[in-house]
Amino acid sequence: MIDVLYFAWVRERIGLPRERIETGAATVAELVEELRGREERYQAAFADLTSLRVALDQELASFDAPLAGVREVAFFPPMTGG
């Protein structure tokens, strides 16, 4: 089981802030494919990966990063702090 978190418009498009997912995905990209296949709202959120960022266990990562040992995946748009 892995915790998947969504922030900003990703959260709004999917309609929930977090969920626990049972997945066999080996990489972030595979997890994204799996989520896209679920429902329209996931397709809407993951339509353009260049406008998304991902963090694995609270550290920024790339979409080809492996998920082995990861407990928390977060998807969000580019950050706008400051």
């Binding site: 950050m79 706008t80 400051g82």
Partner: peptide, 23 residues
């Protein structure tokens, strides 16, 4: 670095509605 590496997201609120600020 805080602008693009700290996980904050800003949403502007106005009479016309709301909009996420794009990086």
């Amino acid at each position: 670095y805080l602008k693009s590496r700290a996980p904050f997201w800003k949403k502007e609120l106005s009479a016309g509605g709301e909009a996420w600020v794009a990086a």
